[in-house]
Write a protein that binds this DNA or RNA. Structure first.
Length: 497
RNA sequence: GGUCGGAUGGCCGAGUGGCUAGGCAGAGCUCUGCAAAAGCUCCUACAGCGGUUCGAAUCCGCUUCCGACCUCCA
């Protein structure tokens, strides 16, 4: 039963057997959003992916501390202006007001996608002293230099000392060394193009600023993650995650900073999620190749033919592995919608089927098949969290669920014990691990159920009189408002289209 | 230009040195007043060219094409 969990480690570019530093416990850090703008779909996919990873690790019984930061300071724009303060100027708001607004929006979106909150969600602005300390440590270790109040990480020195810069992102050290002089000319204060700022002296217009030993300024954008992961998870922890596009320079520099300050790398396993694509390309605001979650939910975009609810969008995301890029297309979303409904329908059937339908002997002919599908689901998840493969196995379970419902003889070929296992597995994965949830509120559901039962009852009378035109009228009218009636042997059922 | 990752049936997408992914769409059948759902059956692909091998879509090389990163990005 205890199959070993394998995780693809970006550091080694291989799947490795996962062994936590402390048995049974996991420290996991995921790079969170920069809250200077609305979350976009790509963010959502990454955080949904890590949410499922988190939930699966919980399910396996690990005690986890999951830390995901909020970046509310420190990213530089081309013009040297802090992104937070730029947002502030556009919106005529205080920087912290901007951060709060978009943090709220982010949290709201995470709830819509039914993800669990991290255990700690630290903000960069709340950890300025820790970041200053880290800069000091790096300086003390001789791996940074001060120019006009700003502090830069000395990559050449670092390479000399550890010979490991570029390992994570596959950069070749020699290439970094061979940067031309022409490049250097444009590098103002930096001694070498690959050097990066860890503390930046604020210009007069810069609103977000803190005192430090070197200047009134603000921290470099890679520093927050180094400082906060160290603070909450220790100098070395198990898993560090983030979007693939953060590998370089963000994660590479993070590793350098941690090594520079503490002498060793922060994380043992690095996980990177792949990009969400639209029209085969990474989404980008500047060239209009983008679709927001809101547009998707409302169906207001040239890229899609109709609205797709959050759970459908989430289900769509589950159908690709987290390390593969995923292209959003209308066709794929339609398929996801159909599948999502199929999965929710099976959930309902599972709830309603009586245990008496199944064989009360110790074992029955189809038990082995059922158990093997369940095993396959676990194997898929243990193999680098292969959600799409697990989903395909769950399609098999659905087939068993439907057949058990339709065919009493079929149900008798499954023992009650196996059926309970199947039920447990299906519920656990769909609801607890994948975080798929029914979308309407419960009170609405009660009312709708009552109304529908009434209508179905009335239509039954009509049908018994063979008044087909009235019967069809009811069915057609319901269809127009999105409800499909299904006449079966056992009576009429209904579902949303 | 450098680094990395891809190229799978009409579409989306797993996977693997020999044995069916799965789903969507499409065709037929069963059930059924009709419809829908469900079940069954069919459609059976791995960019191209070489090589390794008893055997490659899976390993190696080359070619073509695509994407990401190299600047802020999940």
């Amino acid at each position: 039963m205890d199959s070993q969990l394998k995780i693809y480690n970006s550091l080694s570019r291989e799947k490795e057997i996962f062994i936590p530093i402390q048995e049974g416990k996991i420290g996991m850090y995921v790079c969170g959003p920069t809250v200077y703008n609305d979350v976009h779909l790509g963010n959502c996919r990454t955080f949904v992916s890590f949410d499922i990873i988190y939930r699966y690790l919980l399910h396996k019984g690990y005690k986890i501390r999951y830390v995901r930061n909020i970046t509310d300071v420190g990213h530089l724009l081309d013009d040297g202006e802090d992104r937070m303060s730029k947002g502030a100027r556009i919106d005529q708001l205080e920087p912290m007001e901007v951060a709060q607004k978009y943090t709220n929006g982010f949290h709201h979106m995470m709830r819509i996608f039914n993800t669990l909150s991290p255990n700690i969600e630290p903000r960069a602005t709340g950890h300025i002293p820790e970041q200053i300390e880290m800069v000091q440590s790096i300086l003390d270790n001789g791996l940074a230099y001060i120019v006009a109040g700003s502090v830069y990480f000395n990559t050449l020195k670092f390479i000399e000392k550890y010979n490991s810069y570029g390992k994570l992102s596959g950069r070749i050290v020699e290439d970094l060394m061979v940067e031309t002089r022409d490049d250097l000319k444009n590098q103002d204060e930096k001694r070498h193009p690959s050097d990066f700022a860890i503390w930046i002296k604020a210009s007069d217009e810069h609103i977000m600023r803190w005192n430090s030993p070197w200047s009134v300024g603000f921290p470099g954008w890679h520093l927050e993650c180094s400082a906060m992961s160290t603070k909450y998870l220790g100098e070395t922890f198990d898993i560090h995650g983030g979007g693939n596009d953060l590998k370089f320079p963000h994660h590479e520099n993070e590793v350098a900073q941690n090594m520079g300050a503490c002498g060793h790398a922060p994380a043992r396993y690095w996980l990177h999620t792949n990009m969400l694509l639209l029209n085969g390309k990474k989404m980008s605001k500047s060239d209009g190749n983008t679709i927001s979650p809101q547009e998707l939910f409302a169906g207001q975009s040239e890229h899609i033919s109709k609205a797709y609810s959050p759970m459908i969008v989430k289900f769509f995301m589950l159908q690709a592995h987290y390390r593969s890029s995923l292209d959003i297309t209308d066709e794929a979303l339609i398929a996801a919608e159909i599948n999502f409904k199929k999965f929710m329908e099976a959930l309902k059937i599972l709830d309603n089927l009586s245990l008496d339908l199944f064989n009360n002997a110790d074992s029955a002919p189809k038990d082995k098949e059922v158990e093997s599908i369940i095993q396959n689901i676990y194997s898929a998840m243990d193999d680098d969290f292969n959600v799409p493969l697990a989903i395909s196995e769950m399609h098999q379970l659905i087939s068993y669920i439907n057949q058990s419902k339709n065919n009493a003889e079929f149900a008798k070929q499954i023992s009650q014990a196996s059926w309970l296992n199947l039920k447990e597995c299906y519920n656990t994965f769909l609801i607890q691990i994948f975080g798929i949830a029914e979308e309407s509120s419960e009170s609405d559901q009660v009312v709708t159920d009552g109304l529908m039962n009434l209508i179905i009852e009335l239509r039954k009378d009509v049908r018994e009189r063979k008044d087909w035109s009235s019967s069809d009228k009811i069915r057609d009218s319901l269809k127009e408002i999105g409800i499909q009636l299904k006449d079966g042997k056992e009576g009429t059922e209904w579902g949303k289209i």
